[in-house]
Nucleic acid binder design. Structure first.
Lengths: 122, 122
DNA sequence: CTGTATCCTCAACGATACTG
DNA sequence: CAGTATCGTTGAGGATACAG
């Protein structure tokens, strides 16, 4: 019998990885292909990306859709349950933006480049 | 110049570690001693706990207060800024609880033992 | 393009002992 | 009790090559 002591423990197990919240964040704006995701997640390798997607799939947050065609095309999207994680990701985005502003005011040399090219292209 | 593409990236850098959100969660209910924290965070070693606390301190979320006495006593608490992270931790707790319920309904053998002994003692 | 399989590296973590 | 130092382990993640 697995035991938790706080709700947050379960949350961290599922989206506590280094990249998962970010992946969900990107998928909120719509289904994305593997390569698309990788392009938007700076520093992640293909191997790890796919691995994280698999785990999110197992936990019921992400759905994988294969188009039978050549060349291959695969899209990942959020399940209805995955969409509920929106709540978390959303506050994380907001808080993060404020954090960046705060640090800029303190003189840190950082910048937030809002990615334009995300909504709908392909 | 450090570049971010989404607000959430900054958030993950700061509280994306394995334990940090949990630590903040525990500190919301009030200042805690090192040993107290360790007791509530199952599976963390003292070394890592202190390390994470130091990082949270550097990022301005946590304050360290040393009582000059023997035996030594140190308490950690949230700064005003740390308290703002409440928003994130709070949804994570809520979502986690719902996640546990959901999985219980699906037949998983898990349980959430709400820690009684947390608010005020000592 | 998507995904698997290897190999390899490095940093995070655990355990322990020790200091104040 | 709080914290540091050291050593050893392990596993996550990177790089690359290759298959469908």
């Amino acid at each position: 019998m697995k035991q938790y002591h706080l709700g947050i423990e379960a949350t961290l197990e599922i989206i506590g990885g280094k990249w998962k919240a970010l992946i969900i964040c990107l998928l909120i704006s719509g289904a994305k292909r593997t390569s698309e995701l990788q392009r938007h997640i700076h520093g992640i390798s293909q191997k790890v990306l796919i691995q994280q997607l698999r785990e999110l799939e197992e936990d019921g947050l992400v759905r994988r859709h294969v188009y039978q065609q050549m060349p291959p095309k695969v899209e990942y999207s959020l399940t209805e349950y995955g969409v509920t994680a929106n709540k978390i990701v959303d506050v994380m985005c907001t808080w993060g933006k404020e954090n960046i502003k705060r640090r800029q005011c303190q003189g840190e040399d950082i910048v937030l480049l809002e990615d334009e090219s995300m909504g709908d292209f392909e």
